[in-house]
Write a protein that binds this DNA or RNA. Sequence first.
DNA 1: ATAAAAATAGTAATCGTTATCAAAAAAGAG
DNA 2: CTCTTTTTTGATAACGATTACTATTTTTAT
Lengths: 136, 136
Amino acid sequence: MLLAPGSTPRIRITRQRQIILDELCSVTSHPTADDLYQMVRRKLPRISLGTVYRNLETMAELGMIQKLEVGGTQKRFDGNAATHYHVRCQRCGRVDDLDLGLIAGVEKEAAAKTRFAILRHRLEFTGLCPECQKKL
Amino acid sequence: MLLAPGSTPRIRITRQRQIILDELCSVTSHPTADDLYQMVRRKLPRISLGTVYRNLETMAELGMIQKLEVGGTQKRFDGNAATHYHVRCQRCGRVDDLDLGLIAGVEKEAAAKTRFAILRHRLEFTGLCPECQKKL
DNA sequence: ATAAAAATAGTAATCGTTATCAAAAAAGAG
DNA sequence: CTCTTTTTTGATAACGATTACTATTTTTAT
């Protein structure tokens, strides 16, 4: 069967895709692609790093997961697709969720100050995690 | 004269450093290191990209400028060292300042919800700039 | 079963940034 | 001013994270 031109390709639930998602959702940390690669390899030793990247990208586009662009060199992934805020340790890079309600009305407020069409917002705190506080 | 051990090396105001800073401050956009390199090259054609990176890093550490870790692949720099918020166009990557007062008390609120020591926060909006709105 | 579509593993390429290092420039001491 | 020390530079190599490529395999639909 030929796909109608312009139609979105059907997404398949492959073993690799499922396990990547399971591993990501099993954890409240915010693993990097490489972290996930290490986790998934325990169950699928032959998986390639490229497959992990590719699937994380795909699932983020579909809104199943979130790709976080928090500070630092590596991107992180979050199995919780709902908007929420994060704290990042500036020393070790650890990223935790922050149980803070979304700030009401900020997007409206921002929209009033600019000609941009506001789509979403992100609030990120930087600090020192308990462990790194001790070490200093 | 020998420098006392552990003392901070004295920073020199070189021609390259001055021009990089001037160029950055002459602009309200938030240029990447490469943008700055192109700008500075018009005045100092023999400067190297490494020098631009090195000096931006140094000046950011000294708090003279800000290194922004907004979304996207490249870091951006801001001649305005004071904390303020940004909007980023998700289509073209343009980053504008947002004339929005700092949200009072969020850091205190965040500190109450976590064991992290909060040092600072960052609020970033994502949207479509006027130009990209037209194009879609 | 067969054919079409999508995904995979493995690898190469790319991109932004950092590191290295010999040479040049700047500052202080005499 | 001259000598010495320190810092910075330009040039280039190295690096780490991510993306692209491709032949093969897997999945799905017919």
